[in-house]
Design a protein around this nucleic acid. Structure first.
Lengths: 230, 230
DNA sequence: AGGGCTAGTTTTGCATACAAAATACTTTTG
DNA sequence: CAAAAGTATTTTGTATGCAAAACTAGCCCT
């Protein structure tokens, strides 16, 4: 029985953390950028206390790095970090797929299938934003079907670190076609409840993505400088 | 080239977070226990600001839970949480083993082998504390051999949540013998660089451990009450 | 002109102050 | 006597204050 006017108005530090996290993930604050407390306080209209608490949370999530007595900066991933992080994400998604294949209901499967078709439509229209939105939605559904909130949370946290790379807008035609094909296989394996197959497919999918991103980094098309404060 | 007098004297909130984390993991603060700020301030001799920042970090790590306007409590895992967490840990350790088998050097392997023999000695002497210390050391070595700091960090964070269960002191003879045997197999597979085999073995090992812990919880031998604030 | 030193400014880290919410306590009333 | 209501106390959440460390910039000196 919830309060009637249940606008829980979560604590300020939580709200600030959410907004900061959003800004970092969306690329609104570039990797390596300094988080100036006074400045952010003015923008968000809060005092330094909740802001600093929020920054500490983001640091624990690995989204920002704390430099002692020198403030915080948006986490900067060098090539090795990206490789490592993708490796972990691949493992987590593989597990997620494995569990989802075992536990998914027909209704959930139907919904994922529907989203998949919408994604095909977006692909046909070359509508990249919609495609990515649907892609993320499908991944969320798979995570949900895995029935493991701890796994889902861990995935989200680690995944957030990769999103600061903003490698989305780079996707050429061939790769796109191939990705779509792999997604079709995913739905297939989910339908057949092929846990092992789906797991392996997801891992392979992620490792390919990793290599693509690494190539982008190497070619410098990923405004991602090498770590300067080694 | 580091500073000569490099006693970095990390910031207070970091120090406080470490001490709190330690206390929680060691069972010094029971799951569900309230973190009274005034009280902890007195004990640690710091003001509320760094203390609260530390608590926020632990919350992001999943070690404490924040109740809006009602403070923080040590994270309380119900049965499902334990199942879920073990599932994730199993996945992470499986991956760690897989990578370690591919990347371990002969020197690292030799060291692990040595630790394993020490562990056998501890087992023969029924020296449980030493056994667990060596067990943890071996796991750390495997993590190190996997050459993936992101994986290692993720593992540590998720693993910390399980340690609050303090299920260590419960280990009967049969289970102990079996565990030792499995450890021998692990060293074997590492030596043969059998990535897949080691991965599967570690996962199986963890899932058995999970079932043991769940049994302990059910039988109430694991001072772990069911979540009262559902 | 360039490098290093020093004064001034900014920024961070920690402590404290104050308000609002929650908890505990007391008193009152049915 | 119990339940409810009102009051006091504690505790949390946020803002602000103050000191130390880090940056900036100007100056002096070679």
């Amino acid at each position: 029985m919830n309060n009637i006017v249940s606008i829980p108005r979560q604590s300020l530090h939580q709200e600030v953390a959410n907004r900061l996290r959003q800004r970092i993930i969306e690329g609104d604050m570039a990797p390596g950028a300094k988080l100036n407390e006074r400045e952010l306080c003015e923008v968000m209209n809060v005092s330094r206390t909740p802001l600093r608490e929020a920054i500490k949370m983001l640091a624990a999530e690995g989204l920002v790095e704390l430099l002692p007595t020198r403030g915080a900066v948006v986490a900067q991933l060098d090539e090795q970090d990206v490789i490592d992080t993708f490796e972990v994400i691949a493992g987590l998604e593989g597990l997620s797929g494995e569990l989802a294949a075992q536990r998914i209901t027909d209704e959930e499967l139907a919904e994922i299938r529907a989203l998949h078709f919408e994604m095909c439509a977006a692909h046909a229209r070359r509508d990249l934003p919609t495609y990515y939105r649907l892609n993320a939605a499908i991944h969320e559904r798979i995570n949900a079907a895995a029935r493991n909130p701890v796994l889902a949370q861990t995935w989200r946290t680690v995944n957030a670190r990769l999103q600061v790379l903003r490698f989305r807008s780079n996707l050429d035609g061939t790769k796109w076609d191939q990705a779509l094909q792999e997604h079709e296989q995913m739905v297939d394996m989910l339908a057949r409840r092929d846990a092992d197959g789906l797991s392996k497919l997801l891992v392979r999918h992620l490792l390919v993505k990793r290599d693509t991103v690494i190539d982008l980094m190497r070619s410098g098309r990923l405004h991602q400088p090498t770590k300067e404060n080694a």
